[in-house]
Structure formats: structure tokens, C-alpha cells
């Protein structure tokens, strides 16, 4: 048994144990905190499986954003779950066992874990992504080149989903639905905590600087628009939590945020349209410069910034929507 297998199995065991505990807990605040732990362990597993970009995103999203959103949702509803009656447990268990059994049966056809000659690895596209991309695009991080260039249209679709989700949350909870329901300033303000305030104020510029670094360094190392957007949003969320929502909304007014949500998407689309006007196909960055590789660099940078803007604006807006809502009891 190699060291890799040992670490892999222990991390997976921790994951399954955490999942079991989460599924049994009826106190939902505890469940939310444990699911943050779950995300951290998942991020470690992603690093082990060579997916550094994904690990980065999971750590920022799972611990930073989704925990805060879950806690915000819980603060607005009940944080204690009713006992699941016995008659409800059986169908769920039956479905889970059946589906799990089917999956295990079907997994016999899967290639061995980590095998280098599985259909996925032997496909000619693998060579295109890993080696041809060095000549086509010339950036070392192939995840970025696949994300922003080869599968740019796909990523545009994903960004559209994020955009739609942001609009949906605004429609459900935003001030458009309840114009009177404006700000609320009570327990979310942590103004008494002086140490926390000093340290947060000290770290804030570094968080934002780090987000920018992640955005612009995505060509060479792990990073890119999605990660940068989420880190930006996490910074704003921290600011809002520690210094109060009023202050956070003075720093980034809601109108600016609402304008930034479609701006990123339009920038992305705009790059594609400019490519078409210059005689290429949609999102074919070669046309942006006389040298195709330079064009690709510029296109990827613009597209990643567009992703970062929309993701950061949507996540921050979602947080403000939850935090501004008054609890009804």
C-alpha cells in the first residue's frame, strides 16, 4: 500500500464519516459548520487528485461563501429539524441502497483508478489540451486554457447560470420584492469585537490583493476568474460581517453591484462579438491581435476578468440579500 493510497483512503473515510454525522444531526447550525469541514477535507482530496484549481475553488466556495449563506438561511428560518418519522426513512434507504448497488455493479466497467491508458487519457483531445495548447495558446496552466479558450462557450453558459441564479435570488429576497424591507442592524454587527475588527481591517487589503493575484496569475499557476471572484466576494462578506452591513453597502453600493452583474456577462459576450466582427468565429481570440498567441493571451485575460466581475458581484449580492432580510418569527 503506497503513501498515496493511505492518505486517499483516510481522507475519504473522514469524508464519509463527516457526511454520516451531518445526515444524523438535527441541529442544523452544527450541520452547517460540519459541512464547512466537509468542504475543507474535499479540498485536500482535490489537491491529492492533482486538481489544484478545483481545490482552490472548493476551499473558497465551500468554507467562505456557502457556509455563510447556509447560516444566513438558518437565521431566517428554523435551525432545528423535526424528527424524521420511521415511515419516511424506509423509502429513502431503499432508493439509496438500490441506486448505490446499481452504481457499484456498473462500476465494474470503469477503468481502474489512476490508470494511464483509459479511454479518457488515450483520447486525442488529451494531447491537444496538454501539448498542442503550448503552441496554440502558450500558457502553462492547461486548466485555464481549456476553461477560457477551448471550451469558452461552455464557460459562457456556466456564467449565464451564475447570472440567472443571482437574478433569481434578487427576485426572491431582494429589495425589489419588498422595497420597505431595507436594512437591519443588530446581531450581524460584531462591533464589540475589537481584536477581530483590527485584524480584519489589517487583512482586508491582502485579501483583495490576493484575489487580483489569483485573477492575473491564472495563466501560470492555479487561479482564474471563478476563484478570484469568489475570494473577492469572501472579502466583502467578511467586511460586512465584521463592520456591519451599512458600512459594507457604503463601500460597495447595491446599485453598483447590480450594474456589475450583467457587466461581466456582457464583457464576455462582447469579446465574442468583437471576434466575429474581426472575421473569426465566436470567441476565437486569435483575431484579437496579429500574433495568434498574443490574441489568445488578451482574450483569456478579458474573459477571466469578466468571469471574476460577475461571480464576485453575484456572490456579494446574494449575501447582502440574505443579510438584509428581517427574520419573521
Amino acid at each position: 500500500m503506497t503513501v498515496f493510497t493511505l492518505i486517499n483512503i483516510s481522507l475519504l473515510a473522514i469524508l464519509v464519516a463527516t457526511a454520516l454525522t451531518v445526515s444524523r444531526l438535527r441541529a442544523l447550525y452544527e450541520a452547517a459548520m460540519l459541512s464547512a469541514l466537509f468542504s475543507l477535507v474535499t479540498a485536500c482530496l482535490f489537491v491529492l487528485l492533482d486538481a489544484v484549481d478545483v481545490a482552490f475553488t472548493e476551499a473558497a466556495v465551500g468554507v467562505g461563501i456557502s457556509t455563510v449563506l447556509l447560516l444566513g438561511g438558518l437565521a431566517l428560518t428554523r435551525s432545528r429539524e423535526a424528527v424524521t418519522p420511521r415511515r419516511r426513512r424506509l423509502p429513502g434507504a431503499a432508493v439509496a441502497i438500490l441506486a448505490g448497488g446499481t452504481l457499484v455493479y456498473a462500476s465494474q466497467d470503469l477503468p481502474a483508478f489512476g490508470s494511464a491508458d483509459s479511454p479518457v487519457q488515450r483520447h486525442p483531445l488529451t494531447d491537444t489540451y496538454l501539448h498542442q495548447s503550448q503552441e496554440d495558446i502558450g500558457i502553462p496552466n492547461t486548466v485555464t486554457s481549456v476553461l477560457a479558450s477551448y471550451r469558452g462557450l461552455d464557460t459562457l453558459g456556466e456564467l449565464l447560470v451564475v447570472f440567472t441564479a443571482g437574478v433569481a435570488v434578487l427576485a426572491l429576497l431582494g429589495p425589489l420584492a419588498h422595497p420597505v424591507d431595507a436594512r437591519r442592524r443588530d446581531d450581524l454587527d460584531l462591533v464589540d469585537y475589537r481584536v477581530l475588527r483590527v485584524i480584519s481591517a489589517m487583512l482586508m487589503p491582502f485579501i483583495l490583493l490576493f484575489a487580483l493575484y489569483v485573477l492575473f496569475h491564472g495563466d501560470f499557476g492555479p487561479g482564474g476568474g471563478f476563484q478570484a471572484g469568489v475570494i473577492f466576494a469572501a472579502g466583502f462578506v467578511l467586511y460586512g460581517l465584521v463592520f456591519g452591513l451599512d458600512k459594507a453597502q457604503q463601500v460597495v453600493p447595491r446599485v453598483v453591484l447590480w450594474a456589475l452583474i450583467p457587466f461581466g456577462l456582457l464583457l464576455y459576450l462582447g469579446v465574442g462579438v468583437v471576434n466575429m466582427l474581426l472575421g473569426g468565429s465566436f470567441l476565437d481570440y486569435d483575431t484579437l491581435s496579429s500574433d495568434p498567441a498574443a490574441g489568445q493571451h488578451l482574450g483569456i485575460l478579458l474573459v477571466e476578468s469578466a468571469i471574476g466581475i460577475t461571480v464576485a458581484a453575484v456572490m456579494t449580492t446574494v449575501f447582502f440579500s440574505f443579510a438584509n432580510r428581517r427574520a419573521t418569527r
Partner: peptide, 25 residues
């Protein structure tokens, strides 16, 4: 390791938290 699954999952994580937000809303 293969980059394509990583690209798909990277975007899926962010989409996942966006849909979680809609569900919570």
C-alpha cells in the same frame, strides 16, 4: 492528470453555490 474534468468541476462548484443560494432563498 487530465485537465478536462477539472475544468468542468471548477465551474460546477461555483454554479453549485449559486443554485444553493436560490434554494435557500
Amino acid at each position: 492528470s487530465h485537465p478536462l474534468p477539472q475544468v468542468l468541476i471548477l465551474t460546477a462548484i461555483v454554479v453549485g453555490v449559486a443554485t444553493l443560494a436560490v434554494g435557500l432563498g
